[in-house]
Amino acid sequence: MSRVETGNKELRKVFAETLEELMRENKDIIYLEADLAGAIGTTGLISSMPEQAFDVGIMEANMVGAGAGMSMKGKIPFMHSFGTFASRRCADQVFLSGCYNHANIKIIGSDPGITAETNGGTHMPFEDMGIYRTFPEIAVLDVAEPHLLREMLRSMAEEYGVMYLRFPRKGKLCYYEKERTFSIGKGVIVRDGTDATVIASGIEVAEAILAAEELEEEGLHVRVVDMFTIKPLDEELVLACAQETNAVVTAENHNKIGGLGSAVAEVLAENAAVPFKRVGIPDCFGEVGNIHFLSEKFGISKEDIKEALRDVLKEK
């Protein structure tokens, strides 16, 4: 049973270290940065690996296009910007130069949803997964745990194709053992239960684990799934959870429209109608604030997940 603990390393540190490891192992792995190295903690990486790491400046469209061009020559570019600019700002380039062109590019969007905190509504991507989920031949990943981040970066380097991964720069919460292995497209049961399932992604996985622990004290046994791949969705696991627990709640740090909740709803509506509720951000813009304020304000806190679980359990 996974426990949520606070680690001693921010995810951006894990990101920089893992990328460096991968780049040292494979000289074809390239890192492109759109002038946010200072924010994501890769300034040292760029100066220490000048043959593979490049700050291209504030030009996300060109970064994605040039990265796609590099992949035509066997390079494997990882490219980073804040989630807003790594999605909205270069969506057509990811679609055409990336997916339609069958390129091999890895896009990293940092500070998804409310984790943009004091950068506010302009920098708060509530829609990035929704945009990319409608593109054919792309993988969309929502990650907020160090071991999972490390493993996913490794998988992204190894598997061909266009992939988008979002993670919070300053996240520190841990809930996986080092031995745990992961596959893109396969969800993970992080806590088992029989009364209902929370299918969560990103920072909502920890919230869901905490919610489940508190409900356990009330005698309710809640399963928690980390559905870190929003696309391709692990439909088999969604249906197994529906059949085995007969009630499903989704939890995501994203607009309720278009993200994890929508993806799960699509599968359930066609295959297994069980009591179902989405915890996610209502259809609105973000604003400045700290993570706790924003989590409550936008209805994605542990308490919101508990309330949603109580609602679906009433419907069973």
Binding site: A66, G69, Q93
Partner: peptide, 30 residues
Amino acid sequence: RMKTPGVDVTTGSLGQGASLAAGVAFADKL
């Protein structure tokens, strides 16, 4: 490029070929 022999890069949304070409040339230099 996925459909026609001899086409190296897929284009169609104006401006994108410029970055793709620059990326190809950049990788060649590397």
